[in-house]
């Protein structure tokens, strides 16, 4: 009961700040633009999910971060947490309520963005979109955003000030998404592993690289897309076919990546709660 009250109160608060509307509209607009701009180049909508997945992995967490980093740390900094916990809310119920609102916004905005993309594809592409592929893409993308928001809320619950929460969330985004499987040419996991491999007596095999690469939510997300969304895709697109002949490494196994994503989705909020449960509030 109190979890629902905390969640309802929290959702009402963030909804009225227009933060939710901002995130939902921004991602839906970006999704629509990606599909509108690619219809002429790629007649099969599934090819455009390749570009949209990059948006999900690198832009969507940045849109969600401002909404998540103050979830608990903001209440602690403002003292509002004494209002919530002075009532018969346990710390678990309070944390659940806070997590549920952020997770709902994350999953909702992701699914709406994918739905908008589907609608645009249906209206403008030469070939109709495959509902099954889009459903899989939506579900996988939503799981990824849940994992990232879980990390952000966990960071927020683990620190006592706004500034630490902001630094922690931006750091988590950079490490787990931009650095791990990111577009940065120099500063990424690959170059870091190259640097380690350059040390005397150290070697990092390709299979080890694949396994390490799968350990972040973004890594697991990108590793699962070929299997769940792009397998057997029509159109002979090189961008999608590049995954067809991947070596038989453990890091590319769907079950490993599903396990990694599940571990982040469940484990991060759990760790955040455990930190919050023993925090001194005052």
């Amino acid at each position: 009961m109190s979890t629902a009250t905390v969640a309802r109160t929290d959702f009402r608060s963030i909804r009225r700040s227009y933060a939710v509307v901002g995130v939902v509209v921004a991602f839906a607009a970006l999704s629509a633009l990606v599909f509108l701009g690619s219809g002429e180049v790629h007649p099969h909508p599934v090819r455009t999910t390749f570009g949209l997945s990059a948006l999900v992995a690198w832009a969507l967490p940045l849109l969600l971060a401002p909404l998540a980093y103050l979830a608990v740390a903001g209440d602690r900094a403002r003292g509002t947490i004494t209002y919530h916990l002075g009532l018969p809310n346990s710390r678990a119920a309070y944390f659940r309520g806070k997590y549920v609102t952020r997770a709902a916004v994350a999953a909702g905005s992701t699914l709406l963005g994918v739905a908008v993309a589907f609608a645009v594809a249906l209206a403008t592409y030469e070939h109709a979109p495959d509902p099954g592929r889009f459903l899989a893409f939506g579900a996988l993308s939503a799981t990824f955003t849940l994992a990232m928001v879980g990390v952000f809320v966990a960071v927020s619950a683990s620190v006592a000030s706004r500034s630490r929460a902001m630094v922690g969330v931006v750091g988590a985004y950079f490490l787990l998404s931009a650095f791990w499987v990111g577009p940065l040419p120099v500063l990424n996991l690959g170059t870091a592993l190259d640097a380690v491999a350059a040390l005397p007596g150290v070697s990092v095999s390709e299979s080890a690289r694949a396994l390490i690469g799968s350990l972040s939510p973004a890594g697991a997300y990108f590793n699962l897309l070929p299997e769940l969304v792009w397998a057997g895709a029509p159109g002979e697109y090189a961008a999608l076919q590049q995954f067809a002949d991947r070596p038989d490494y453990l890091g590319y196994e769907p079950w490993v990546n599903a396990l990694v994503l599940a571990a982040w989705t469940v484990g991060a909020p759990l760790v955040g709660y455990l930190r919050f449960r023993s925090a001194e509030l005052g």
């Binding site: 009961m1 109160t9 929290d10 009402r12 608060s13 003292g79 509002t80 004494t82 209002y83 009532l87």
Partner: peptide, 30 residues
């Protein structure tokens, strides 16, 4: 906690919530 009423020192309200909604949420929680 259900039998305790607390007025904390120097706390800020839940953003964008009315005074009545603060009280209503407390009623619901209790």
């Amino acid at each position: 906690k259900a039998r305790v009423g607390l007025l904390p020192e120097a706390f800020e309200p839940v953003p964008n919530l009315t005074g009545r909604e603060h009280v209503a949420a407390a009623v619901e929680t209790k």
